[in-house]
Amino acid sequence: MKIEIWAEVTCPWCGLGSHRLDRAVEQFEHGDEVEVIHHSFPLSSSFPVDQTFSARDALLRQHGVGGSQAEVSTRRIEALAEAEGLSPYKVLDNLVGNTDLAHEFLAHASAEGKNRQAWDAIFRAYFGQARPVFSLDDLLDLGQEIALDRENTRQALTEHRYQRQVRDDAARAQRLGATGAPFIVIDGKYGIPGAQDSDALLDVLRTAWDESHPLTLSTDGDAPVCGPDGCAVPAHS
């Protein structure tokens, strides 16, 4: 089974949604046969490069949400994350910025066979440690933590080798019906918008599995069986 999840690095629902998907796969009876692939869905390309803002300022600029409303909405996400095993999970007191280079870093890491490690590392650094993940040096340091070659990574990012791939990733999600992030697609058939809870995701995983693995009955239909009307005796008895 193939599961694809599109996410934005600084989206708190994306970090939580990725965690919820992990929990669903862990509980899934066929979890060892599931491949999870992360894709990019940048949402901050309009932000200036090389500048960061407080999450409070960003909420006000982008969504017109400020004051107590910002406090209530973001603290709710933090509380949900903590209740589900993500602690600390920093949202309101974090910085935000243009994540285009971060997505290019993630594409490079994926090309090096480290898709999962890179996405886990960037969510952990940003939400768990409130570390910036916007500049070249931020990303080179993060790359070293997952054993990416620093100079090779530097070259890939300064050349913007994966810029087109990031755009194509986001465009594909939109063609599949995504209007925001996170967005999950299971086996190319089931699209799931938003950070659904783990139980809901588990139900969809089971439905998708049953659909792609229909039960095949044995050709031997003459074995003893009991039904609503009693117990049948094989004809050859």
Rank of each mutant, 00 (worst) to 15 (best):
P88K: 04
V133K: 00
P132T: 04
N115M: 06
D149G: 13
R150D: 05
G113D: 10
A125M: 07
N98Y: 06
A83W: 00
L86V: 06
Y126V: 08
G113N: 10
A130P: 03
I146F: 10
Q155N: 12
G97K: 06
N115L: 09
F134S: 05
L95R: 10
E151K: 14
A118I: 11
K114P: 04
E82D: 07
R116H: 09
L136H: 08
Q155F: 09
D137F: 11
P132R: 01
G143C: 02
V133R: 00
T153V: 05
L101C: 12
S110H: 12
L92F: 06
G113P: 08
P88S: 08
F123L: 11
L92V: 06
Y126M: 10
P132Y: 02
N152I: 02
I122W: 09
G113C: 15
D141H: 10
A109Q: 05
D137S: 15
Y89P: 00
A83F: 01
R150M: 05
L139M: 10
L101E: 08
Q117W: 03
Y89R: 00
V96H: 00
V96A: 03
F127C: 05
G97H: 06
A130F: 03
V96I: 14
D93W: 02
R116E: 10
S87Q: 13
D138E: 08
R150V: 10
S87R: 10
L86C: 03
I122A: 04
A121C: 08
L140G: 03
A121G: 01
E104T: 11
R131K: 15
N94D: 05
S135W: 05
E145P: 03
Q144N: 06
Q129R: 15
V133F: 10
L92C: 07
L92M: 05
D100C: 10
A125T: 06
L101V: 13
F127T: 01
S87E: 07
E112V: 07
A109M: 11
L136R: 09
Y126A: 08
P132S: 11
G85E: 02
V133I: 14
E151H: 13
I122G: 00
T99K: 01
G113V: 12
A125Q: 04
L139D: 01
T153A: 08
G113E: 12
D93Q: 15
L86P: 00
K90T: 15
N115E: 08
Y89I: 01
S110G: 14
Q144M: 14
R150N: 04
F134G: 03
A130I: 05
F134K: 08
N98E: 09
E84H: 11
E82Q: 12
F127V: 03
D120L: 15
Y126W: 07
R154D: 01
D149A: 14
W119T: 12
F105Y: 15
E84N: 12
Q129F: 12
F127L: 07
L92R: 13
A118H: 05
W119D: 00
F134I: 13
Y89K: 00
T153N: 09
A125G: 06
L101A: 12
V133G: 02
L101I: 13
